[in-house]
C-alpha cells in the first residue's frame, strides 16, 4: 500500500532567497551531481517531498517556488510564462549555472518548455511530466479551477485518494484552504485563459534538446493524448508511462518517476 509517507520528509533543506527577475524568489537546493532545475506543478509548491529526496541521491536539485506560489510573491506585473522564464533564467545566472537539466510537472512543464524554447543553450535536457500547455482538440485538460474539494482530490489522486487526501485542505481548515487558494490564484494568473499556448505547436518541433515525456497511466486531469502529443511534437523525445499513478505521479510513484528521470539524465550526461 502507498504510504502517506509519500508525503513525509524528515529534513527539508532550508528555503533560500534569490533576487532575480525583479522579485525575491524562494527556492531550495540539495544534492550533488548534474544540476536539475525542478519546476513544480500547480499543487504542493511549498513542499519538499520524497520525490525530491530520491532525485538528490544522484542529482543536484534546485527547486524554486514560482512567483505567485507558496512563499514567492508575485508582483502585479507578473502575469505570464514569459515572466517566469526570465525569473528562472536569472536564477541560473545567480547560481552560476550555465546549463541544467530542466524537469517540470503540469504547469511547471509548460514553464520548462518555454524556458527551453527561449534559452535552449541553457537546457541540457527537458523532462515534462503530465504536462499542461498544449491544446489537443477533443481532449481538454480537466477544469481543476472549478473543481470541488472531492473532485480535486480525484483529479490529483484518482478515485481513491487514500492517505494522500491528507495533503488537501480538510473541511473547515481555513489556513490550509487559504494557502491552496493562493497557489491556485498563482496558477490562474498564468493559465486561466487560455489554458494552452498554441505557439507551442510550432515551437516544440524546433526544440532540439533531448526530451523525456512522462505520462501518468491513470491521470484524470491530463488526458493521455497530451503527453502523446508532446512526444510527437518534440523532435528528440521519448515517452514513458507510469502505470498505477494518477496525476500526482510524483507523490504516488516517487521512486519510479525519480528513477526514470535519473536514467534519462545519465544517458544525456554520462
Amino acid at each position: 500500500m502507498q504510504q502517506a509517507a509519500g508525503t513525509a520528509v524528515a529534513h527539508a533543506p532550508p528555503t533560500q532567497q534569490a533576487e532575480v527577475g525583479g522579485l525575491s524568489l524562494t527556492y531550495r537546493e540539495a544534492g550533488a551531481g548534474p544540476a536539475v532545475l525542478y519546476l513544480h506543478g500547480k499543487d504542493f509548491a511549498a513542499r519538499w517531498l520524497p520525490f525530491h529526496v530520491e532525485l538528490t541521491t544522484t542529482l543536484r536539485v534546485l527547486a524554486p517556488q514560482h512567483p505567485g506560489f507558496a512563499a514567492t510573491p508575485a508582483p502585479s506585473w507578473f502575469r505570464g510564462f514569459d515572466d517566469g522564464v526570465i525569473v528562472h533564467r536569472e536564477l541560473l545566472d545567480h547560481l552560476g549555472l550555465d546549463r541544467v537539466h530542466v524537469v517540470g510537472l503540469d504547469i511547471g512543464a509548460w514553464m520548462a518548455a518555454d524556458l527551453a524554447v527561449f534559452h535552449p543553450e541553457r537546457v541540457a535536457s527537458l523532462t515534462v511530466v503530465a504536462p499542461f500547455g498544449l491544446r489537443v482538440p477533443g481532449s481538454p485538460i480537466a477544469d481543476f479551477f472549478g473543481a470541488s474539494g472531492p473532485r480535486n482530490a480525484e483529479l490529483l489522486f484518482g478515485a481513491d485518494p487514500g492517505p494522500f487526501a491528507e495533503l488537501l485542505p480538510a473541511p473547515g481548515d481555513i489556513d490550509a484552504f487559504v494557502a491552496s487558494y493562493a497557489d491556485a490564484s498563482g496558477a490562474a494568473r498564468l493559465m486561466w485563459n487560455p489554458r494552452y499556448d498554441l505557439k507551442l505547436d510550432h515551437r516544440l518541433p524546433r526544440l532540439h534538446v533531448p526530451a523525456l515525456v512522462v505520462a501518468a497511466g491513470e491521470d484524470r486531469l491530463v488526458p493521455a493524448a497530451h503527453p502523446a502529443r508532446w512526444a510527437e511534437l518534440l523532435p528528440d523525445a521519448r515517452l514513458e508511462t507510469i502505470d498505477g499513478a494518477a496525476h500526482a505521479v510524483h507523490l504516488q510513484q516517487p521512486e519510479r518517476l525519480a528513477a526514470l528521470i535519473q536514467t534519462f539524465i545519465s544517458e544525456v550526461h554520462p
Partner: peptide
C-alpha cells in the same frame, strides 16, 4: 452556489 464557483482563484 458551490464555493468553488463563488470564489474562483484570485
Amino acid at each position: 452556489i458551490a464555493p468553488q464557483h463563488l470564489f474562483p482563484p484570485g
